[in-house]
Nucleic acid binder design. Structure first.
Lengths: 236, 236
DNA sequence: TAGAACAGTGACCATATGAACACATAATGC
DNA sequence: GCATTATGTGTTCATATGGTCACTGTTCTA
């Protein structure tokens, strides 16, 4: 079967979609699926989803389902009827899309202590749970590639980042002053990225913790762009 | 179409089956269906059920499904794929809290400086712009009545609440230690609620600002339960 | 012992359903 | 302004799937 240049997002193992977070339409579709699940209903077929959203074409649904699958929100069984299974239950519960300013879904990769825990971009997995974040409210650019981390420890309290907070990170290179997730000795740590004499190092924002001057090249996994704080630290 | 004497259980409105309790085979099938449901799997098709039980014929499954339906254990949609829905689910069978819906939309009422800006519960309007917040992630109870405020000023920096942050408030009475939005002299201010000698007052968490001891009864508009921090302060 | 109920088999058919492919327009970001 | 991504439409097709019908064997009960 000839593969045209337009052929995209057909399988999860395909190249990653251009953006990791869900678009508005994808989120609507995902919420529709979750509502079915919540109400213990049979998973909808592609034509039932088409009817719900008023699409003239059933293929639009296939396109969106593939996108959701490639972003790790759902799991599908190819060629099987109604074979959509929700993987991420955390995101997008509000049934009224009109009430929402542009929310986006970002994958939550688990909590990391400021100073501990394994993290690699490669570990962004299909079944990672997501949190919903209002990109417009927090000034996050729509195309940003983001992930979430939960802070453990108080090494960054001087930067008003508390134990239990969730930080939203963007995959990009830092500029001095940024709060970054960095990989040191096989572990991820959250610190402020600073330079001295042209050499970068990681500054704790708590006098009780030492600065980290890497022996090897510093690997920056992401730059903090937002923070969420609630009460308690519910685990997913 | 000739209806044989053997014809039974074809529709729920047919005469009731000879026995109301499930036979052994029916019970096995019902447990199979329930296990799929418990494990959040896609409902099985008649042929998948056939394969599981090793039937040579797919019609055996149809027969059993009709029996289960006539005995009130399941609900089916005629002619639809995988359209089996469990009716008898013991309370709490799906005990995974992650299956609960999570983000809610809360009205954003505009930014208030810590110490300035007008706010009344009566002004909470249906068309007020909203932000989307992941309630589960932030540990916010589902029934909470909430609103959002944007902080302006640094009077609460000692509590790690920064200028430009968005705080999520809940309409309820405070306990000492809570961060509250209070109405003083016709204006709303964000402060910590403390008491001394049984008398409440509002404590700034920045030595540069005075504590506020109300001359009249203190009006508490809400208690802070979460915080969102992004970069910049985009306005809606 | 005979009839009813239960539990299947096998052949066949209609349609629900997922998916490929070509194409078009709008939105986004550099 | 252009390339890329997003979001579709429309046509077509293969197969997954539910269901009918005729039939058979076993078990249970009056």
């Amino acid at each position: 079967m000839k593969t045209s240049a337009h052929r995209k997002n057909t399988l999860p193992s395909d190249p990653k979609p251009a953006r990791l977070s869900l678009t508005g339409r994808q989120l609507e579709l995902f919420e529709f699926l979750k509502q079915h699940h919540r109400e213990d209903r049979i998973p909808p077929s592609t034509r039932e989803i088409q009817e719900h959203f008023g699409f003239a074409s059933q293929t639009a649904v296939i396109h969106h389902l593939r996108a959701l699958e490639s972003k790790g929100c759902i799991e599908r069984l190819p060629g099987k009827a109604r074979a959509v299974r929700i993987l991420n239950i955390a995101a997008g519960e509000n049934s009224d899309p009109a009430a929402r300013p542009s929310p986006e879904s970002v994958p939550l990769l688990g909590a990391i202590p400021a100073g501990l825990a394994q993290l690699r971009e490669a570990t962004v997995q299909k079944d990672a749970p997501c949190v919903v974040v209002d990109f417009d409210l927090l000034g996050i650019p729509r195309g940003a590639h983001t992930f979430a981390l939960r802070v453990s420890g108080d090494s960054m309290i001087g930067a008003h980042i508390l134990d239990g907070d969730v930080v939203i990170m963007e995959f990009r290179e830092p500029v001095p002053g940024d709060i970054v997730a960095a990989l040191i000795d096989g572990e991820t740590t959250l610190k402020r990225f600073v330079t001295k004499g042209g050499h970068p190092y990681l500054k704790a924002e708590n006098p009780a913790y030492p600065d980290l001057i890497p022996a090897q090249e510093l690997v920056i996994q992401g730059v903090m762009i937002a923070l969420l704080r609630g009460r308690g630290t519910p685990r997913r």
